[in-house]
């Protein structure tokens, strides 16, 4: 077997995908919008699927969010995880229902619930994946979220690629230096070893992170984070433009249309 450098499904790839997602470097529709309007947009689509039991409307709403996700240029890692999750969930639930004597109605019911959940998830992917963490945290501030949460958002985004890389380095060290062994039945021994390494990696990660967090919090203290007088200044950076209004209006019309579609079909 020959090793080669892989561009996908490697630690490096995951890290890059995280960075791309986190910093909305793909561009896309929502990246240009005011965070408050993006969150409002998301809230609309998160709530409306629960207001109907009509399959046509639900499919229409799902289509709407799917188009939005495409416009938001969601990345392959996120989209892949999303799809796998929903397809398998549906498959298992249906399999179980079938065992208990379910029929096509059960399947329809499951399609309904799965599509509703998928619509909400896809809307959140489209919205939050496109938002710059800074804008998101400013948006949260504007809506009176605790300062700690708003800071957590932007700090988390900044640190995540770094921490993930650190984990990768430590894990590599463990893999190279720890005892090797056989793969075992179904690779279970190998799986067990990998599990142990993943756990053991946390010992150095805990201590290294504690050390760097101390500097971070000290520096936050010296830079007035706890003085927290900057809320208004940051909120003032936001502005709602024509694009924001247009996107929300189009969405509202589309949602109403989806519900009308339902009426149309019932009459027919």
């Amino acid at each position: 077997m020959s090793r080669k450098t892989r561009d996908v499904l490697s630690v490096e790839w995951v890290k890059l995908e995280l960075i791309r997602t986190a910093y909305a470097t793909r561009g896309g529709l929502f990246a240009k919008m005011d965070p408050r309007m993006v969150i409002s947009w998301y809230l609309i689509l998160a709530v409306v699927p629960w207001l109907t039991h009509d399959l046509v409307t639900i499919i229409a709403l799902f289509a709407l969010t799917a188009v939005s996700a495409a416009l938001a240029r969601v990345g392959p890692l996120v989209l892949g995880l999303f799809l796998i999750g929903f397809v398998t969930d549906f498959g298992y639930a249906f399999g179980a229902a079938w065992v208990f004597g379910g029929d096509h109605e059960t399947a329809l019911a499951l399609v309904e619930i799965t599509l509703k959940l998928a619509t909400v998830s896809l809307a959140s992917i489209a919205a939050f994946v496109s938002l710059d963490p800074e804008e998101l945290s400013t948006g949260l501030l504007a809506w009176k979220a605790p300062e700690l949460l708003a800071f957590g958002v932007s700090y988390g985004y900044r640190m995540m690629p770094i921490l993930f890389e650190e984990f990768g380095t430590v894990f590599t060290g463990l893999r190279l230096r720890s005892p090797q062994g056989k793969k075992g039945f179904l690779g279970l021994r190998a799986l067990w070893r990998w599990g142990t390494w993943a756990v053991q990696a946390f010992y150095p990660i805990f201590l290294n992170t504690a050390k760097s967090v101390r500097t971070t919090v000290e520096s936050l203290e010296t830079r007035g984070f706890t003085a927290a007088q900057g809320r208004d200044l940051r909120i003032a950076q936001l502005s709602i433009g024509a694009l924001d209004v247009a996107v929300v209006a189009v969405t509202a019309v589309a949602v109403v249309g989806a519900f009308e579609l339902d009426a149309l079909f019932t009459i027919a």
Partner: peptide, 13 residues
């Protein structure tokens, strides 16, 4: 104050 491990002093993207 600029720290020795200044990388951890940077908290914004």
């Amino acid at each position: 104050y600029v720290y020795q491990d200044f990388q951890n002093q940077l908290v914004r993207p």
